[in-house]
Design a protein around this nucleic acid. Sequence first.
DNA 1: ATGGCTTACAACGTAAGA
Length: 258
Amino acid sequence: MKVATWNVNSLRVRLPQVTEWLGTHQPDVLALQETKLTDDLFPVEAFAALGYEATYAGQKTYNGVAVLSRLPVSDVQSGVPDLQDDQRRALALTTGGVRVVCLYVPNGQAVGTDKYAYKLDWLEHTRRWLARELAEHERLVVMGDFNVAPEDRDVHSPQRWAGQVLVSPAERQAFRALLDLGLSDAFRLFEQPEKVFSWWNYGALAFPRNWGLRIDHVLVSPTLAGECRSCHVDTGPRGHERPSDHAPVAAEFSTGPA
DNA sequence: ATGGCTTACAACGTAAGA
């Protein structure tokens, strides 16, 4: 089974790139963030034509998450349980024998702001939810835009970013608390090159100079970690015309469909 | 690099992202 996550920063704009990427890489499951579409505008047919069933939770202008799957889908959960939140940032479902959770973690704007407090609160509620998901599902993958670079090696310039939002100690602690549930960062299960990132600021200079952060992640339960065969960032789409500022992150498991 | 983009909205500038 092959899964991937991609913050597309507007599915309306990026749909041609997403369908092209699906055709090339043929994942079984693709989690999307920042679709920025209300549900009535979700391009269900475009994905059905490629063999994907779409599950989505969107809103106007901001946020919005979706999961595409080539396999039958059940037990859909929209939103973080027990969290009062109008922002569409979480979607869970079961497909191909795997529990899939798609997350778009709040950005946090700046340390000390209301949005930063919301981010930490959101992560804590999500942690409690994922503890239950882990207890119920042997095969669990939690993937999406976490808006946290877990370690300095996930940052192009740790000195420049020190203490800022996306790398602050409290955010890293909240991310670590997710791993402490028993989840593994699939990317770190393997030898990786230096300076691999999943997001680069828009602008002509950032991507060519690889001034990026690794903030998009695939977390896996112990059983899935044992079945994980690869995890990598596909920087290809970031070099296209009108790219998303995020690149897809893909992982492959020996379980289920080839 | 402290944003030099990009997106949506229905506004021709503002908010938000990371």
